[in-house]
Amino acid sequence: MTTDSQTAYAALRTKAIESLLIEAGIITTGAVDDICRAYEEDIGPLRGARVVARAWCDEDFKRRLLDDATAAMAELGVGGFAAERVVAVENTDAVHNAVVCTLCSCYPWGVLGLPPTWYKTPEYRARMVREPRAVLAEFGVQLPDDVEIRVWDSSSDVRYMVLPMRPRGAEGLSEEQLAGLVTRDSMIGTGLPIAPER
């Protein structure tokens, strides 16, 4: 529970630290704005969606992505902070992958942007490793009983992204149209791509 007065105090304390760091010559006046702007305007899940759409269209790229995702994504200019080393894990009819960080909230920022709040909550971090099927159901994802759910607990500097299965009925769509079907949650593993309109 966070009260308004705690919020006001946290805001003051944050500003005090930022001000003192500027005066100490450690950071600049514009640095915090620059950083926030990059994640607000530029670095988001559209990046990962482009990677997934390319993998759906190009078998050779998909192979490179599963072999060395960091290098393959760099071909599309995707990467950066908290995506220095990325592993892509492929969903199949037999295995559904999903990502969590139980110890903090590690997430592939350079591929998907900053994580949603639920990803950082004790609820998700505690439950996803132990009862993934129940958690996925809360996200509206129902998987057949014979599918293995493989949860990746992101405990090192390697960041994981899920390569979801290409939805049925997406034949004939362009790579750009396919990217529009790739949701953020489908690359975390708590969602599936959007089914194309028929």
């Binding site: 919020t7 946290a10 805001a11 500003k15 760091l21 950071i27 640095a31 915090v32 900053l114």
Partner: peptide, 17 residues
């Protein structure tokens, strides 16, 4: 992306540090 403006500030200040 940020629910409070100070969330953005502490995020950016930590990153810059």
């Amino acid at each position: 992306l940020f629910h409070e403006s100070w969330h953005a500030r502490i995020f950016g200040t930590t990153f810059a540090s």
